[in-house]
Amino acid sequence: MTAAVVLTPVSAPVADHVLVVALDGALDYTNAERLRQDVEAALGEEHRELVLDLSGVNFCDSTGIRILLSVRKLIQERNGAVTLASLNARLARIFRVTGLISAFIVVPGLAEAVDAVSARSTPR
């Protein structure tokens, strides 16, 4: 089995309803379900926005994307969105080919992710 993807909470200048988590490892068929459980466990009731820093993720297969889509569904039910930061070339490729890149907000880095969630949270 591929080693479990490690979740690390990231302290970032964001509002309380935003959860920022860094993922490390390779996300595939053998460990994707575990990641779903870990992300769901990390989400508090107050969280309606999720930012995933993927700079430490070197691989993601179709099963991994499926799991991220199920996490997205959970966040959407809270009227929020999932922001993905720092995809490497291999991750960007599978997200683009599958067309699922449009299901997420994809930004180059964590700073841009913080800007994106802050902009969405500002009352108009």
């Binding site: 595939d28 068929y29 053998t30 297969d61 179709s62 490729r93």
Partner: peptide, 20 residues
């Protein structure tokens, strides 16, 4: 480059098809 990425992604998908 990108074609190496493509092959690794595709081969992984074929392998998980066998597992699943």
């Amino acid at each position: 480059g990108p074609r190496l990425d493509d092959l690794v992604i595709a081969a992984n998908e074929a392998a998980i098809n066998v597992l699943e």
